[in-house]
Amino acid sequence: MVVKVNKLVKRYKDLIALDHFNMEVKEGEILGLLGPNGCGKTTAINCILSLLNFDKGEIQIFDQKMTPNSYEIKKQIGIVPQEVSVFDNLTVKENIDYFCGLYIEDKHLRKQYVDEAINFVGLKDYLKFYPSSLSGGLKRRLNIGCGIAHKPRLIFLDEPTVAVDAQSRNFILDGIKRLNKEGSTIIYTTHYLEEAEMICNRIIIMDKGKNLVSGTNEELKSMITTTEKIVAGFSDIDEEKVEQMRKLPHVIDLVKREEDYIIKFENGINNLSNLLEFIKDNQLTYTKLYSQLPTLNDVFLELTGKELRD
C-alpha cells in the first residue's frame, strides 16, 4: 500500500474539516479525490503530508508512519500545490533545478532530471523566462515541473488545472497519464468531474470531510439507481401531459430545468422508444430529445441530493 489513511479527524475550532476520513492508494494507480469546493480535499492532503496536524487517525506512507521528520519518505514524494509556488526572481530553469536539488544531490543526475522535466512540461523555449512573464497555463506547467523533476514514486497534484486554458489543460492531463505510465503513483484532487473520469483508475468522492464512496468509474455509476436520463424539450406541453409522462413505466423522477425536462429511468431498456410513443400519441412537438448515461455528477447528486458543481 502506498498511502493508507485510517479514520482521520481534523477540526478547525468548531468546524469539522475531516470526519473519520479513510483512504487507501495502491502502487501504480491514479486516484482521484473528488468533491465540491471546501469538502476537505486539500486539508486531507496537507494532513497526509504532515503539513497540518490532526486530531485523530493514522497515516502511513510506504507502510511507514508519516511525520514531519520522515525525510526518507519525503524523498520519494512530489507535490504540485494548488497555487503556483515558485520563486519569482529565479528563471524557469533555475526554479526547477532548485527544487530538484532539494532531493537529488548528484550533479550529473540532477542535470539530466532537470532537462527531462523541462521537456516533460514543454517549457524548453522558456528556460530563461521569469515566472511573472509566463502565461497562466505555462506557470501551471512550471509549477508541475518543480514538483516532479526528482522522479518521485508518489505524486500529489492538488487541482493542477484550475484556471488553465484548454490547450494547457489537455497537455497537463496527458502528462499525468505519462507520469503514471513511467511508474509513479498519483493522487489527484479536482472538482472537475470530466477530468477524473478521463484519467483516474479509482475515485474517492468526498463531502463534508467524509468519504462518500470509492471505486472505479464504472463501479460508482453502477451504485446508483438511475441508469438513463433523457433530456427533452417541447414547444407545447401542459401540466396534465407532464403528469402523464411522469407515470410512464420505469420513470423514477422528472424535473424541469429551464425549458427542458429531465426524465430519469431506473433501467435502460426501451425507455426512449416508450417516450417517443407517448409523444406521438399525444401529438406533442419536441424541440430536442436525447438520452444520457449517468455521470459522476449524477452519482454525487443521488448520494447527497446536491450538485457537485454549481
Partner: peptide
C-alpha cells in the same frame, strides 16, 4: 508552510 506556498514545498521536501 503557513506563510507561503513555497513554504509548503519546502516542508514536504527532505530538507
Amino acid at each position: 508552510a503557513n506563510l507561503s506556498e513555497i513554504g509548503k514545498r519546502m516542508n514536504i521536501a527532505p530538507l
